[in-house]
Computed example of a mutant assay.
Amino acid sequence: MARKRTAAVGDIEIRLLRIFHTVVECGGFTAAEVELNIGRAAISMHMADLEKRLGLRLCQRGRAGFSLTEEGRQVHDACLRLFSALENFRGEVDTLHARLRGTLDIGIIDNLVTIPRMQVTDALSALKDIGPDVRVNIRMIPPNDIELGVLDGRLHVGVTPALRNLPGLDYRPLYDEESLLYCGAGHPLFARADGDIPDEAIAQADAVAPTYAQTLEARALHRPLRATATATDREGVAFLILTGRYIGYLPTHYAELWVNQGRMRALRADDYRYRTEFRIVTRSNARPNLILKTYLDLLQRQ
């Protein structure tokens, strides 16, 4: 058969390709008659039309039975990719037409708003552009409560430190947070250079210990400190450090305001530091939710 450049694929070609696909799936013209609800002669005519349009011999048919040529197999593989792309396109267009309505319930731990990497904020802004009618509810609660809220459906999504993996939840990385050891203005260590601050001076200083959940690395660095005060959240840690009487760990983005004001400083930042990974938490096998899917897609793009 003479070769020629394939014409543009339009509605007619797609219809013929779907007939071809059905014939291949059924294993021949005769079996495809019932599936297509047309006669064998009509199927043969459509196949001949498709071969003419493509300039390719797609199959052998006759007394020996039905079989694909090598080119027919390749065209059929291309058909499957084409049909998949068309379905994806249709789904994306349907999503654009579907107006986002409803609520998005988010659980976040305290004091993340000052982190420079604003994926959560930027994704919420983009969600407002796409779905102006979406109602967003944010709850500032501890990590354990966030995970339980996602599990029982009270929350659609959460942002938590990487402390553990619970069955029934999916976790995906969001960003890392760095924490350093700080003291406040007026503390005996505040005016001393890092080289003049031995480990013993840090170990003997009054320190604030957090009572909220921490990573293994964070717990290991808190253990040598002389904890004479506790705090249930990071704002409480900051209050005590700012008294000038305690040392304690804070995220760098959260302490930055007071550092710039000269009210806090980091102690031996190269030695006393740790990183905490934060993750997006969703429920495994949750019911489809277009608002949540859109928000997660926007987070991924950020």
Rank of each mutant, 00 (worst) to 15 (best):
E256L: 08
G39I: 13
N285M: 10
Q204H: 11
F190D: 05
M47G: 09
E200P: 06
L112Y: 03
A286P: 02
Q204S: 12
V134T: 14
A266M: 09
T230I: 07
S179L: 05
V93C: 06
R164G: 01
R101N: 14
I14R: 05
Q204G: 00
D129H: 02
P173E: 06
Q74E: 08
T230G: 01
R192P: 00
T69S: 06
E200C: 08
I12Q: 10
V159M: 07
L163S: 04
L50W: 08
E51D: 10
A207V: 00
N137C: 14
A213K: 03
R18E: 14
D145G: 15
Y295R: 06
I106Y: 02
D133L: 12
A286V: 11
D110N: 12
R164E: 08
D110P: 00
G62M: 11
M264P: 01
T6A: 07
P132Q: 09
H253I: 04
V24T: 06
M1H: 09
Q300N: 13
L151E: 08
E35D: 15
I280Y: 03
G153A: 07
R172Y: 02
G248E: 02
P143M: 07
G153W: 12
A203C: 00
I106S: 06
T160Q: 02
R265S: 05
I138T: 15
E177Y: 01
A42T: 15
Q261I: 00
A41T: 15
L189D: 01
F239N: 10
M1V: 12
I130M: 12
Y175G: 02
R164V: 09
G65P: 06
A238I: 07
P251E: 04
D49K: 13
A42P: 00
L169P: 03
A48L: 13
G168A: 05
I109E: 01
R15V: 13
Q119P: 11
K293I: 07
K128V: 13
A193N: 08
K52G: 09
T30M: 07
N285L: 07
T30H: 07
I197P: 01
E177S: 10
R15Y: 13
G10H: 03
L225G: 01
Q119N: 14
T215P: 05
L296Y: 03
A126W: 11
T243N: 05
V157E: 04
T282R: 04
S179M: 06
I108W: 02
G195H: 10
P173V: 06
E13T: 11
G186L: 08
R279T: 08
F278D: 02
M1Y: 06
T211C: 02
A227K: 08
V9W: 05
G153T: 12
L257M: 00
N144L: 11
R268L: 09
Q214G: 01
F190C: 06
G248C: 04
A201Q: 00
L250M: 06
R81A: 14
L216D: 09
R226T: 10
N88L: 11
C26R: 11
L100F: 09
L174D: 01
F20M: 04
A85L: 11
V120P: 03
H222G: 04
R5T: 12
Q214N: 09
L296V: 15
L86F: 09
R154D: 12
Y254F: 13
E51Q: 14
V120M: 13
N285Q: 10
R226S: 14
E25H: 08
T160H: 04
N289H: 14
H21P: 00
E35S: 15
L221A: 01
Y175E: 05
I241N: 02
D77F: 13
T22L: 03
V157S: 06
